[in-house]
């Protein structure tokens, strides 16, 4: 393993988003807090999902997770497509970094960005809403695995897309619907039967449900089931990405 090589690519990726932190960290934190403000204000009186949990409190874990995964996706996908379009991807392709090393660096960078955004939202939100923490290990595990899954998806999208609008399409037609229909704003049990069944095929649902369990100790499905589903999704996607990287798909012509 070229550990220093991985560390360097990771460092480069982190430097890349932190140099424009206002856009990559600040903006998502503020957007999410605005969501929270609006939805909790409008719905606080009318909706209660879990007993003894205010709607604002219920909403926070879902919103955090949604930002975590969207930012993880944005990080790896935009970095790869930018490097491809500007041509500076050659600086990585010319090095002895292996497929696994490249994969790890991009994914961990996406996780770091996702977790940084999530932590930012959490720290501001707990000023306004009291939020219990039931199981911190599960909570961190879901944030980590969820952002790794989306970091990997971002890598796939970045490798596949040749233009920025193809990437935007992937984001708008795959990532956004899946993350909005994952139970951020509601409990699965409040949906009609058909949609409940459909949601069970959405891996994002398990990320959010499990993450929420970490706070409240309550969830729609068992957190262990969620953990297995999310970890298995990561494994499958990681293997697929490693396959693409080893074939040089759309990278080495």
């Amino acid at each position: 393993m070229n550990l220093r090589g991985i560390a360097t690519l990771l460092y480069k990726e982190i430097l890349r988003f932190s140099k424009v932190w206002l856009q990559t960290l600040g903006a998502p934190v503020i957007t999410t807090l605005l969501y929270l403000l609006v939805f909790s204000h409008v719905l606080e009186e009318h909706v209660q999902v879990f007993r003894n949990v205010s709607y604002s409190a219920f909403l926070i874990p879902g919103l955090i997770m949604m930002s975590v995964i969207q930012n993880a996706f944005a990080n790896s996908s935009s970095s790869v497509i930018q490097s491809k379009v500007t041509g500076n991807i050659v600086f990585i392709l010319l090095t002895p970094l292996s497929h696994l090393e490249v994969y790890l660096a991009y994914t961990v960078a996406a996780v770091v960005r996702g977790l940084a955004v999530g932590l930012g939202i959490y720290l501001v939100a707990i000023f306004f809403v009291s939020l219990p923490v039931h199981n911190v290990i599960l909570l961190v595990a879901f944030a980590f695995l969820g952002s790794a899954v989306l970091g990997t998806l971002g890598l796939i999208a970045g490798i596949w897309a040749e233009k920025f609008d193809q990437l935007a399409g992937f984001q708008n037609f795959v990532i956004m619907p899946l993350s909005f229909l994952s139970g951020v704003f509601y409990s699965l049990h409040s949906l009609p039967e058909f949609w409940q069944q459909l949601s069970r095929f959405n891996p994002f649902f398990y990320m959010i449900d499990g993450f929420r369990y970490g706070f409240f100790g309550m969830s729609d499905v068992s957190p262990w089931l969620s953990l297995v589903v999310v970890a298995f999704s990561l494994l499958l996607l990681a293997l697929f990405t490693l396959f693409l990287l080893s074939r040089g798909y759309k990278l080495r012509h």
Binding site: N2, L3, R4, G5, A7, T8, L9, Y11, K12, L15, F91, I92, T95, P96, L97
Partner: peptide
Amino acid sequence: ETLRIQSGYFGLG
């Protein structure tokens, strides 16, 4: 930065 990063990819510190 560009040059140091490139050197890091090759495992050099």
